[in-house]
Design a binder for these strands. Structure first.
Lengths: 327, 327
DNA sequence: CACCTCCATGAAATCGATTACATTTATGTT
DNA sequence: AACATAAATGTAATCGATTTCATGGAGGTG
């Protein structure tokens, strides 16, 4: 890798002039500019982000923290973030945290160290304290998950209302025995959706049956299968299931079919997220759609604004009930 | 963010001594070390990766370049890479290239600029020339995809043989009209698997029917559906399908069922990759399993060795035929 | 032609850390 | 006590780029 010094030497100018050419400063003669451009080409020179940042503290890199890349829910959000970021001259780096505080800290430090200009966080933070400290001095935006005391800017949906709509849909179809497959309640969305589930039941005068609520520890298909197996083994079986994620819903669907029951005739299912696979199952899955791509775009927008020092406002986007064959 | 100078001042020592404490040099008194540690804690100091790298050219960061995060094939590989990298004190950053040369260049430059110590590449490189140049001076390992003239180290499987096994499996079940849904042949694996498909047909005396070979432009479920629709609309319909990816196979499966046909009775299907979804379909999907996690682990191993200057050898891993309900 | 202004360019400081080398301090030996 | 030696610490150069300030030269004006 050539350095700015070598380019300067080759072009017969000083490093300062090369830097001016690189940054399109106006005060460079056409002639000098050409000499420098020539030298840059010949040496195949690329400026070092390291040297540049050290001086300027700007890297034009954004970090996107997600708990797990295997969850298809995040892919569209990330597409939205990427499209917008690239449009604005930023690049993104994906960081999988596995919801592990140590990994999270490492990525937080990359921001502190100015290796990145900002973070979009989709993890329910494990270390609340260090997050708040970081957010007080660095640009951070939360997407989907957020801090309930609203210190950090966020883009999300109304999870409680969305869950309420999902369950109301089942109730209006005549369902009265509705189970709920939820995920780890460390996630804000899990807590909120549970509230929505309970609110709908109460509002329509249905009992909340704790045996019908099952929290999985992970978000794999197998976890949905396991949950459903537990529900099917009960004496008083539910006749409908609301799963907090399509992945869990699809696992549940598979389990129901394996046990010889029919969906939606014997048991109706509704999922959440509208992942692309939810349209490939047989029957296709009724679900709640989040505007994932848009959430990504808006998060990126918000973060870039913050980096530039502008004020931003939190956003709650609309969801949509997608009725398909499973209910 | 505190700097090393401020810590030094607070502790009443020089920056050099602080640096020695940070890097566990032996030549520091217990007493001084304590003073420094104390100062570090009080100021909440974290060393800047920027300053450090500029001097040392070491960041302990690895870049992983993938074409698209939405392809579940990559998730397990990435898990393998991550586990091994973390074990060795490295962190990884995921870069989605979208197979876009510009994006690729940006990430290549991060390596040139020493923001990262090495790259694991899973994209069929768009800009061959710049890749080879980069590889001549920086640690790069290719995983799954690789350069056929073997200049760059790689970890992969024998795609031709795997495809041959898949098709042979169908033939042995009595199938004679076998279609092939392939992906963009920019990908080496697509070219190799096609060769395997053709070799199997020839070997068992079956004609290669060009109407039965369909190349998709993307790797979504919809693309599998489209391809299958085309195949079903022909006068001389195939009775079996080999899809180069489970995602395409699942799309094809859905399309067959929508048209009222039965799998495997009317049309048998075999996929490739053994993604977790492939066990959730009805019927479950016969497929070829790649040792994805292990590929990740070995790639990470190989890259770290390269970074340390060790010699490495290319690796071809074994695949496995997973027979399930769809054949 | 003398003087002033303005523009292009260079010299040197700077960012935050590491490290070779120099210097000081402590320890041991006779 | 005097000296040799080893250990601890400080000084200053360094990495690669940017930027402030200084400088030299071109061009304009009276």
């Amino acid at each position: 890798m050539a350095t700015i010094q070598e380019v300067a030497k080759k072009a017969g100018v000083s490093a300062a002039t090369v830097s001016r050419v690189l940054n399109n400063r106006t005060t460079v003669t056409e002639k000098t500019r050409n000499k420098v451009d020539q030298a840059i080409k010949e040496l195949n020179y690329e400026p070092s982000v390291l040297g540049r940042n050290l001086r300027n503290s700007e890297s034009r890199l954004l970090l996107v923290l997600i708990p797990s890349i295997s969850n298809p829910f995040y892919t569209k959000i990330i597409n939205g973030i990427e499209d917008r970021a690239i449009e604005q001259g930023y690049n993104i780096l994906l960081c999988e945290t596995d919801s592990n505080p140590k990994r999270e800290t490492i990525y937080f430090n990359l921001l502190k160290n100015r290796l990145a200009d900002g973070i979009i966080l989709m993890d329910p933070t494990v270390n609340q304290e260090s997050l708040l400290e970081l957010a007080s001095s660095h640009p951070i935006v939360q997407c989907s998950e957020f801090d309930e005391n609203e210190i950090i800017s966020y883009v999300s949906i109304d999870n409680e209302l969305a869950a309420y709509h999902a369950v109301r849909h089942l109730i209006k179809l005549g369902q009265e025995k509705i189970a709920f497959i939820n995920f780890n309640e460390n996630f804000l969305y899990a807590r909120e959706r549970r509230r929505g589930y309970e609110r709908a039941l109460k509002e329509f005068g249905l009992e909340i049956e704790s045996n019908w609520i099952y929290n999985t520890t992970q978000l794999g298909f197998e976890n949905g299968q396991q949950a459903m197996r537990k529900l099917l083994n009960q004496n008083n079986r539910p006749t409908a299931v609301f799963a907090v994620s399509d992945v869990l819903a699809i696992g549940a669907l598979k389990e129901i079919q394996s046990s010889g029951l029919k969906v939606p005739e014997d048991i109706a299912i509704i999922g959440f997220d509208k992942i692309s696979f939810s349209n490939m199952t047989h029957p296709t899955l009724t679900t709640i759609a989040q505007p994932m791509y848009q959430m990504g775009v808006l998060s990126a927008n918000m973060l870039i604004k913050k980096i530039k020092g502008d004020q931003v406002e939190n956003m709650i986007l609309d969801h949509e009930l997608i009725i398909r064959e499973s209910t």
